[in-house]
Amino acid sequence: MKTGFNFAYLDEATKRMIRRKILKAVCIPGYQCPFGGREMPLAYGWGTGGIQVTASIIGKQDILKVIDQGADDTTNAVSIKNFFKRVCNIMTTDRTAEASLIQTRHRIPETTLNKDQIIVYQVPQPEPLRKLEPKEKETRKLHAYKEYALMHVKLYEEISQFGSVIKTWAYPVETNNRYITDPTPIPKFDNPKMNNMEALQLFGAGREKRIYAIPPYTKVKSLDFDDHPFEIQTWDECCSICGSTKSYLDEIIINNEGKKNFICSDTDFCKSNLEKNK
């Protein structure tokens, strides 16, 4: 463990402030709580929000897993994992089932999370209405008064132009029948996993300085129309490594002729699946 730092990098007062905000966020599912975001030794956009949430809830007994687009071995995931190893001296793992704390960027693991786990999302833009209404003052009112027509107008526009909703990531959800929430840029494939999840879901946005949460067993509904129900992505192919047909697949171009391969985006799931099938 690196000396000269407090446990988990942040000082205790800051951690307490963030924990207080997390409690508030858990009490009001989907509501974005402002918090005093700190400078982290990481550029904005690389997970400063997620890292602060993780830092303030991590304990010595925790086993941490960090993923980036489902993979454990990508730069962002490896760096954040190393960071917490240095400032907390804690165990890390690649195995979803072993982890007590999972920080993620852009995916929810395929393995179902349980009630002893917490998942922390890195959030680039916490406000789902931002692109539809640029004024913060106005978006806060829209949330407060539950005036969400704008969001459905966007879906209407996509159906009228393209025949179906074409938004495939950061697909807006309604949390606990109340707040419209940005699920972060996860593929819409992962949206159903958020519904009634056993694990606590925390969201941290560093640049925008917002924390929000979805408590365990909370209803999370992807927005849709009665006659155009929400659907997730499907593939004709299966994973070319483990043969899975149930997981989210990444498309990989493997030669100059444009030959394509599909592989699981969740590396841990792919490995376990391969071992199981051997």
Binding site: E147, A149, L150, H152, V153, Y156, E157, I159, S160, Q161, D224, F225, D226, D227, H228
Partner: peptide, 22 residues
């Protein structure tokens, strides 16, 4: 937003969630 979207917005304000109706 399109002409249809503009009209739809008004109806969505009263929680009309059927695309063909809009």
């Amino acid at each position: 937003i399109s002409a249809g979207g503009n009209i739809a917005e008004r109806l969505l304000n009263v929680s009309e969630k059927n695309y063909s109706f809009l």
